[in-house]
Computed example of a mutant assay.
Amino acid sequence: MDREPGLGVGAVARHLGVAAATLRTWDRRYGIGPSGRSPGGHRRYTPADLARLEAMQRSIIAGAPPAEAARAALNEPHGAPPHPRGHGAGGNRVPLGDLPAGSDPAEVRGLARAAMALDAPAMGRAVRAAIADRGVVEAWDCLIVPVLKGIGRKYAASGECVEVEHLLSTVLVGCLVEVAPPARPSNPRPVLLACAPEEQHTLPVHALAAALAQADISSALLGARVPASALAAAIRRAGPNAVLVWSQTARTGDDPGWLDGLPGSRPAVRLLVGGPGWNRGRLPSSARLVTDLSEAVTEIGSAFTRP
């Protein structure tokens, strides 16, 4: 074993997408820890140890309590993993597909593994680090969206991972709302961000609010399922230069005619819509469709920077 020292706890934690503290807890509580030693006498995970941990992680994701998952993994010969479960979706892997330019494949895989392990602290650390290093727009485009799309592919192939998507979305919203609002916003009145009536997918508008904050633009996020009458009242109250309405599903964006009934303001409000749910052929001329986060920030910024 001295000839094959194996991996330290940090390397194994990154491989599995869990916190190092989680590995130490599993070792202490369930006896599923490193069995090797480095030349200097430090404990190291062998390939068999790693296989046991992977088997334990799969069982936990499938719903087994950690103690039961550990016992099953320890009883497997040499920690050999069972045949992958799933229906052509890569077992417990997230099918990421082609990554956009600027993505770090290791970073994307790390967040995907943390999501599949339901390791909220690890997810939070990965997302906060990306936002701090590259800003909200690039973190969204190059890290968050690829993982969300991958989970969507896995769900489409197997019907699994609803819980993964829900927990990841919760963690993402928590990270995005931590982005500090601008101390001196460039807009005199906050931009209004809302979901279409009956639309419940709020994550993209949280991302936009955070991206706007980093661009020194203040916003007011009205949240999910905003009735047309409530949005109209908010426009009259706030007098914003720009409003963005999000539709994720065709059910909420198929009949967008109500947008034409929204009031204007002084100066005139720029009405933007975003999301894949909108029926583009039926959008009123008063509404401009934005197709990504960067375009939304640019369009909103130009609404009150024009001479």
Rank of each mutant, 00 (worst) to 15 (best):
V164F: 04
G97P: 05
I32T: 09
S35Y: 08
A296Q: 10
T46M: 09
R189A: 01
R237F: 04
P240H: 10
I144L: 13
V269T: 15
A11G: 05
D119K: 01
G150E: 04
G257W: 12
D255M: 08
R153T: 12
H42I: 03
G8T: 08
Y45P: 08
L222I: 07
R236K: 13
R24G: 04
G102C: 11
P100W: 08
A296T: 08
G264R: 08
L143F: 03
N279V: 08
A287P: 09
M56A: 13
R24I: 05
G174V: 01
L231C: 04
I217M: 00
A157G: 01
G257F: 08
N75G: 06
A224M: 11
E199F: 05
V147N: 02
T46V: 05
V9S: 13
R109V: 13
H78W: 13
C161Y: 10
L99Q: 11
L212W: 08
A114L: 06
F304M: 00
I144E: 03
L7Y: 14
L271G: 01
A51S: 15
E4S: 12
A211P: 13
N92F: 15
L289W: 14
A157E: 09
A224E: 14
L96I: 09
R29Y: 07
W140Q: 07
S35G: 15
A268S: 12
A70N: 05
S103H: 07
N75Q: 13
S286K: 12
S35W: 11
A89W: 07
A122M: 09
L221C: 09
L111H: 01
C142V: 09
A250I: 13
L259D: 07
A210R: 05
E138F: 03
V226S: 07
A210M: 13
S103M: 04
L193D: 06
D119P: 02
S286D: 02
R14C: 01
N241Q: 14
E198M: 11
A268H: 06
H78A: 15
P5N: 05
L172H: 01
A106S: 12
